Computed example of a mutant assay.
Amino acid sequence: MRSLFYSFFVPALFVWLWSTGFIGAKYGLPYAEPFTLLLIRMVLTLVLLMGLAWVLKTRWPGWRGAGHLAVTGLLVHGCYLGGVYYAIQGGMPSGIISLIVGLQPLVTTAAAVLVLKESVTGRQWLGLAFGLVGVTLVLLEKLAGVGGDASGFPLWTLLWALLSLSGISLGTVYQKRHGTGADLVAGTMIQYGAAALFFAVGAFGFETREVEWALPLQLSMAWLVLGVSIGAILLLMWLIRQGAASQVASLFYLVPPVTALEAFWLFDERLGVLAMVGGGISITGVALVVTRRAGR
Score class of each variant (00 low, 15 high):
Thr172Ile: 07
Ala186Cys: 03
Gly147Trp: 12
Ser220Tyr: 09
Ile96Gln: 02
Ala161Lys: 01
Phe206Thr: 14
Leu155Ile: 13
Ala87Ser: 11
Glu118Met: 04
Met221Gln: 12
Ser98Arg: 02
Ser220Asn: 10
Ala200Asn: 07
Met189Asp: 05
Thr136Phe: 13
Pro105Cys: 02
Thr109Arg: 01
Glu212Gln: 15
Gly102Cys: 04
Gly122Ser: 12
Gly148Lys: 09
Phe199Asn: 04
Tyr192Trp: 14
Leu217Ser: 05
Ala161Asp: 08
Met221Tyr: 12
Ala196Glu: 08
Val113Met: 15
Ile96Tyr: 05
Ala203Gln: 00
Gly171Asp: 01
Gly171Val: 02
Leu137Ala: 11
Gln218Trp: 14
Val113Tyr: 13
Pro93Cys: 06
Val201Asp: 02
Ala111Cys: 14
Gly127Thr: 03
Thr121Arg: 13
Leu126Arg: 07
Phe206Arg: 09
Pro216Cys: 04
Val135Asp: 01
Trp156Arg: 06
Ser169Met: 10
Ala186Pro: 06
Gly91Tyr: 09
Gly167Tyr: 06
Leu139Pro: 03
Val138Trp: 04
Ala196Arg: 04
Val120Asp: 10
Gly148Ala: 05
His178Glu: 07
Val146His: 11
Gln89Phe: 08
Val115Ser: 05
Ser220Met: 10
Ala195Leu: 06
Gln89Asn: 11
Thr180Tyr: 09
Val115Pro: 03
Gly147Asp: 10
Leu224Pro: 02
Leu106Phe: 07
Ala129Asp: 07
Gly91Ala: 09
Glu207Asn: 02
Ser164Ala: 14
Leu163His: 08
Gly167Ile: 10
Ala182Gln: 00
Leu143Val: 12
Ile96Glu: 04
Ala200Ser: 11
Ala196Asp: 00
Ala129Gly: 11
Gln104Pro: 00
Ala87Pro: 01
Ala112Gln: 15
Leu128Thr: 01
Leu170Gly: 00
Leu197Cys: 09
Ile168Val: 14
Ser220Lys: 06
Gly181His: 03
Ser119Ile: 12
Ala222Met: 13
Ser164Asp: 04
Ile88Glu: 03
Leu116Gly: 10
Phe204Gly: 07
Gln218Ile: 15
Phe130Pro: 08
Arg123Pro: 12
Leu128Gly: 00
Pro105Thr: 01
Ser220Trp: 04
Ala195Gln: 09
Thr188Arg: 03
Leu170Trp: 03
Ala161Val: 07
Ile88Asn: 02
Phe153Trp: 04
Gly187Arg: 02
Ala194Cys: 07
Lys176Tyr: 12
Ile190Phe: 11
Gln124Cys: 11
Gln218Leu: 15
Val115Asn: 08
Val135Tyr: 06
Val138Ile: 12
Gln104Gly: 05
Ile168Ala: 03
Trp156Val: 13
Ala203Tyr: 01
Met189Cys: 00
Gly181Ile: 04
Ala111Asp: 12
Gln124Tyr: 10
Gly187Trp: 01
Arg123Leu: 14
Pro154Arg: 05
Leu158Met: 11
Leu162Glu: 00
His178Leu: 10
Leu217Met: 08
Ala222Lys: 12
Trp213Gln: 07
Gly91Arg: 07
Ile96Gly: 02
Ile190Arg: 01
Ala161Met: 11
Gly102His: 03
Phe153Met: 06
Gly193Glu: 06
Leu137Cys: 13
Leu140Cys: 13
Leu99Phe: 08
Val185Gln: 02
